[in-house]
Design a protein around this nucleic acid. Structure first.
Length: 828
RNA sequence: GGGGAAGUGUCGGAAUGGGCAGACGAGCGUGACUUAGGAUCACGUGGGGCGACCCGUGCGGGUUCAAAUCCCGCCUUCCCCA
């Protein structure tokens, strides 16, 4: 076999690697600085299988893992399945197959495809979050949170997805719709379990600074946590029956308080019906009912809507009475469901005031303000006007002074608000870890004792979500009936299951000791491998998964379970793979629903997995979005083909004389080692591949001109090593054909020699007045004086100076780069 | 509306502690070879000009000997949150 046939060699080596356990994680018993834990986001195995887009995640981490193995590091590169939760269950529903069966089957397919791509996972450490020996520990962590007061049960207005038939956490609502099925959602009053993530809000925000993460993901987390500093104060209001009442408002803008012209309550606010005057009651009731019925999406689209209650509230700083409205743009969950409204200086208040004919007096003068009414809300800083004794102050200063003054008067106090809410974890679904809680009529809520874990998820046939909003487990008497661990009397088992994100909040710890039975992980092995050195995955989990896992890690750290407070010190996020719609030619995300999926199977069958890997790495920077264009991959295939033929030619040549040209080639090879090494470490895989291509071009030219010399033989050997992390199959095959011992993936990464890598001759650019006029090839070690002389006397410069009668007034010399002659003269 | 990222040939993209714009690849063109291949090899490929040269990194200014890169003001696209 002499032509490059990827299908044959890829299958052959994949089998060989598995048989020889090439990627088995080294077993270490004590902490070792040379370990490298390289982790991918925990995928849920979908029935659609992998697309080439997934390769943008798994190929780079594979390159990194292979690279660090060659660098002598002990590498942990595991894979497992996020098999519990909504995505996996919805998938099973869609196919009409029990989720236990689908997750097993789909995980096997993912594993097959990952092997097809040549990924070097240690499958002996494979985990599955729906396995009892995994979810046992998810439940154990629930109890840990419960014991620490971080898991609690409460009634609240919850997002309900009628399609998924379950409640959802705030962050699982995207653009007013369910994150999984994209259907409309609405709020419902339900008693549910929560994790108190807000207890860690401050640390979750402040320790973002310590993370080596992409800026846009840090920004999303900051936004989501949404810390704001402001004041809370009460506004007195008269109730319909004449008694006194008040409601608390929160504002971040005390400087605008003299501009308040109305107050607004959320439709759900408890005071609404009590303060509404009799003549307005019918209208207000109708409006509140209407608002409650509408989904958030509809409410957002409806604009600034609301009705007057007939009541008036008092602005505590100046005693002014302002009308109180009910408005659906006021959120119950934020700032207590009541606001002071300042139309002149808030966009939403402005819109509302315009619809209802409410005045908008200016209290912060914009720069260059002419004293006339504004055309739109002004939210920037300015000078205080119409604000009593604060007039004339800059608003930025007045903000703090007014807050302090109000506090001193006893009418306000400073508060910090977060946008983030506690994490709702109850799911009225079958396919998840049962919440390990019992309800006893005598003893109340009782946690399941640790020794009784796991609370097994029973294998039932009627697992489809019910229409009644209860988990299917509620219909399984043997599951529900239990004994109270405290009094021994009858108890009822909690039938909701945990949000799937609970599993992914700790799974990265399980990989360090996947079979450990005495705890979620072996502390000694955690000490060996630590938190992942590198974590790679898509930006779609920038808020949910990463925030939850950070929260759990901090809880574990406080419980003394882990010696670190952040689970993922280094995070990288790959760009999204787009594809053209086969019909319309429009570009959108590659997805089964868009009908534009290209599978690694089909590409590997036509071009080989190695070519696919090279192409995915080469086509764009790692973190950029890309469009899949099939034609581009021929470049990757040609590249591998060209090296294949060159290596075979080298292998077939018996006598390989040295050549004077070898020194040049050696220089190229050593510069390539340096370049590829730096690029891989910097996640610049596209330029790393370009560097390999340039090196191969040099080698091919050398071969054509000088034949197979000793220098070329050495170059080919080094090139196979450099190629190994990128195209592992063809590198292994050629390594063998060059007569080297199995396996190329166990060889040390080549080292470059500075002196060999140094260029002997460089190109010195000669400019006149900053314009390129000539180029000189000079020794790299040239001195400044010599460089100046050569520049002044070169052809391109002479033309400029003599023809136009200029003279040189200044010479700028940048060693190794250029000489710029600055001139004065008649033409200038 | 707020926050983030980005605008470079026909296309994907190189080059930012300011210093040869367009590496590498795709596509296209010309030629070679032919056991016609999704093969290989050579040369060319930003625009204009016969040329010396001129113009050119979204647009308009600025700083500098020198700007894709730094500063100011705009425009456009994508992502996240409203």
């Amino acid at each position: 076999m002499n032509s490059y046939d990827p299908q044959t060699i890829e299958a052959r080596w994949q089998r060989w690697w598995a048989d020889t356990h090439l990627y088995r994680t080294p077993s270490l018993s004590s902490a070792d600085a040379s370990t490298f834990y390289c982790l991918d986001f925990f995928p849920y195995p979908s029935g659609d299988g992998l697309s080439v887009g997934h390769g943008r995640n798994y190929v780079p981490t594979d390159v990194i893992s292979r690279y660090y193995r060659m660098r002598g590091r002990a590498v942990l590169h595991p894979m497992g399945w996020d098999a519990f939760g909504l995505p996996a269950e919805n998938e099973a529903i869609k196919r009409g197959i029990h989720p236990r069966e689908t997750t097993t089957r789909y995980a096997a397919n993912y594993r097959r495809q990952m092997n097809l791509l040549g990924c070097s996972y240690d499958w002996e450490r494979e985990i599955n979050s729906s396995a009892p020996d995994f979810y046992r520990w998810t439940q154990w962590f629930f109890l840990l949170l419960y014991r620490r007061g971080l898991a609690y049960r409460a009634i609240g207005q919850q997002w309900w997805c009628p399609d998924c038939k379950t409640v959802l956490a705030d962050e699982q609502i995207e653009a007013g719709a369910c994150w999984r099925c994209h259907g409309p959602v609405h709020k419902r009053d339900l008693e549910q379990w929560y994790f108190r993530i807000t207890a860690y809000a401050d640390e979750l925000l402040s320790s973002l600074e310590t993370l080596d993460w992409p800026e846009h993901i840090l920004a999303m987390q900051r936004n989501w946590i949404g810390r704001s500093e402001g004041i809370e104060f009460d506004m007195a209001v008269e109730e319909a029956d004449g008694s006194e009442a008040s409601f608390t408002v929160y504002t971040t803008r005390p400087d605008t308080i003299y501009g308040v012209t109305f107050a607004a309550l959320a439709p759900e606010h408890p005071l609404v019906l009590r303060i509404t005057t009799p003549d307005r009651r019918a209208e207000v009731s109708a409006y509140s009912a209407e608002a409650a019925r509408r989904s958030e999406l509809e409410r957002l689209q409806a604009g600034r809507d609301g009705v007057f209650t007939g009541a008036y509230a008092v602005n505590p700083v100046n005693g002014v009475r302002v009308p109180v409205y009910v408005a659906d743009y006021v959120l119950t969950s934020y700032g207590g469901g009541a606001i002071m409204a300042v139309p002149a200086h808030d966009g939403r208040d402005w819109d509302f005031a315009a619809r209802h004919g409410i005045p908008a007096p200016v209290v912060i003068a914009p720069p260059d303000w002419d004293g006339k009414p504004l055309a739109e809300a002004y939210t920037g800083p300015g000078v205080m006007v119409n604000s009593g004794l604060w007039n004339g102050l800059p608003s930025e200063e007045a903000k703090g002074r007014i807050a302090e003054w109000m506090e001193a008067q006893g009418i306000a106090h400073p508060t910090v608000q977060y946008r983030m809410r506690d994490w709702l974890i109850s799911r009225q679904r079958y396919w998840g870890a049962p919440i390990p809680i019992l309800y006893c009529d005598a003893c109340g809520i009782q946690p399941v004792p640790e020794e009784d874990l796991p609370v097994d998820l029973p294998h039932i046939e009627a697992w489809l979500p019910g229409e009644d909003g209860r988990s299917p487990l509620a219909n399984v008497p043997e599951f529900v009936h239990a004994i109270c661990p405290r009094c021994g009397g009858p108890a009822r088992r909690e039938t909701d299951t945990m949000d799937g994100f609970a599993c992914s909040s700790w799974y990265f710890l399980r990989f360090v000791s996947p079979d450990y039975a005495d705890g979620p992980f072996d502390p000694a092995q955690l000490a060996v491998w630590g938190p992942p050195d590198l974590y790679v995955g898509g930006a779609e989990h920038a808020v949910m998964h990463l925030l939850y896992a950070r929260f759990w890690t901090k809880v574990m750290a406080d419980a003394g379970l882990v010696p670190f407070r952040e689970p993922f010190p280094v995070l990288r996020s790959q760009g999204v793979m787009h594809a053209r719609d086969p019909e319309t030619d429009e570009v959108c995300r590659m997805a089964k629903s868009a009908g534009n999926v290209v599978t690694p199977d089909s590409v590997a069958a036509s071009y080989g997995a190695d070519a696919l890997r090279i192409h995915l790495l080469f086509v764009a920077p790692f973190d950029c979005n890309t469009v899949w264009e099939e034609e581009g991959i021929v470049g990757a295939r040609r590249f591998l083909n060209r090296f294949w033929r060159l290596a075979l030619e080298v292998a077939a040549t018996e006598r390989t004389p040295g050549s004077p040209a070898d020194a040049n080639l050696r220089g190229t090879v050593h510069r390539t080692i340096e370049r590829v090494t730096a690029d891989v470490e910097a996640f610049k895989f596209n330029t790393a591949v370009a560097g390999l291509m340039e090196c191969l071009n040099e080698m091919a030219t050398h071969s054509r001109v000088h034949g197979v010399t000793a220098g070329l033989v050495e170059a080919a050997r080094v090139f196979v090593l450099l190629l190994a992390p990128f195209a592992p199959h063809v590198a292994e095959e050629l390594w063998e054909r060059l007569g080297e011992p199995y396996s190329v993936h166990r060889q040390p990464w080549p080292v470059w020699d500075e002196s060999l890598a140094a260029e002997e001759a460089i190109t010195l650019v000669v400019q006149v007045d900053g314009r390129l006029r000539d180029k000189l090839t000079v020794p790299a070690a040239i001195g400044e004086e010599e460089a100046r002389q050569q520049a002044l006397s070169c052809e391109g410069v002479r033309r400029q100076l003599e023809d136009e009668g200029r003279r040189v007034t200044r010479v700028v010399y940048v060693p190794g780069r250029l000489v710029n002659l600055v001139t004065q003269g008649p033409a200038a």
